[in-house]
Amino acid sequence: MARMKFLCDSERCIECNGCVTACKNEHDVPWGVNRRRVVTLEDGVPGEKSISVACMHCTDAPCSAVCPVDCFYTTDDGIVLHDKDLCIGCGYCFYACPFGAPQYPQKEAFGVRGKMDKCTFCAGGPPADNSEQEIEKYGRNRIAEGKLPLCAEMCSTKALLAGDGDMVADIYRERIMKRGTRPQSWGWEKAYQEDV
């Protein structure tokens, strides 16, 4: 059984923010919400490292565990999705997520939150695939079209990989062998635990 995973190779990421732009453009993500962002560690210092971060679609997703209305579900291949019709915007998932993935549009005055929004691995949500309703609420459903997340597909340095975890691991293993360095698969242990 294929297990979908993201991996960001910090040795290759050049902080171009192309993945962030591609995601926002593909899904028409509103202002103030970033499903993906690039984080730079030790910015400005020689040897700085950048990583592209979004929902990692965890094996045992903490967001799903804490949701009081059980609006999360996981597909057979491990993509964690949610139903915005059930979400009450409580923010519990934001506090539980180790990657800061859940985002909330500020819809009203006094900081009232809207429905939670996060990376869907380009797999949409419960409405019919690529229906107007799905595109409006969750963005495009590329997985239903046989495509993979756009952020990874258009990454110019192939730093960001998304797909079957075994295939992703094979590519990364080859890179590590060539470089002769230690693997730094950022976030993998936290997200996939024994499934790494």
Binding site: Y73, D83, D85, L86, P126
Partner: peptide, 11 residues
């Protein structure tokens, strides 16, 4: 806990 209560995703 963990029982999804929404509509089924056709995907």
């Amino acid at each position: 806990p963990g029982v999804y209560k929404g509509d089924r995703d056709p995907l």
